[in-house]
Design a protein around this nucleic acid. Structure first.
Lengths: 101, 101
DNA sequence: GCAACAGTAAACCGTATGGTTCACCAACAG
DNA sequence: CTGTTGGTGAACCATACGGTTTACTGTTGC
């Protein structure tokens, strides 16, 4: 279900969160700090990322720590590579076809 | 503006269109045929993909031909690779840190 | 124990999104 | 010329989405 991951990354706020988490884990508050948004809004976004399988969270005391999943982007990467391969081989085929003429 | 491309790919219908176009160009009607959707709906999706810079269309006679852009997925691919790199180097750093202890 | 703090749940709101139908136009085919 | 076909534009509709506020719960520090 890679479209769910794409959808999750389609929101600029969520994309920024992922970029932030790629630098290392952070609490929900940490994620909200640089934004103008309310905490509940940020946590909704985190939940979406979690549902998409991009992020895991765990509660330590009263703070919820968010971290990027190790395998977060492999589905996205493989899908992208696959489509690029298909498309480029088709272009190659066109190229050789033109050469043959 | 990679989040626009992610958003475009976030819809299952649009994802399917891209997968279809990776196999080769198609008319709007061709794209609508395998679906249960109306033609106008499909063309809206195509328009979104076009706005995201993933697809180009051109009108030949009365049929609109849609094709995947050659550079369609490079932004997505590079962004993904970049984040993966960041995250994995951080994991490496953690690994060596643990070794040092 | 109490105050401050981090998060959560719920209700609510405006707008964007994904879809429809209908009317219309331009291009073929006969 | 005429009928059919492929696409387009507009109006419209329901629902999903991104955000808010408010009230509440569980931790932590003094």
């Amino acid at each position: 279900m890679v479209h769910q991951q794409f959808a999750a990354l389609g929101d600029p706020t969520r994309l920024a969160i992922v970029e932030r988490l790629a630098r290392g884990p952070a609490s929900a508050g940490d994620l909200a700090a640089p934004t103008t948004m309310s905490l509940p809004a940020v946590l909704k976004h985190v939940r979406v990322l979690e549902d998409a399988g991009l992020v895991t969270t765990a509660k330590r005391g009263r703070v919820r720590e968010c971290r990027l999943r190790d395998d977060a982007l492999v589905a996205v990467a493989t899908w992208t590579a696959q489509q690029q391969a298909l498309w480029s081989t088709r272009l190659d085929a066109l190229g050789t076809l033109l050469e043959d003429m």
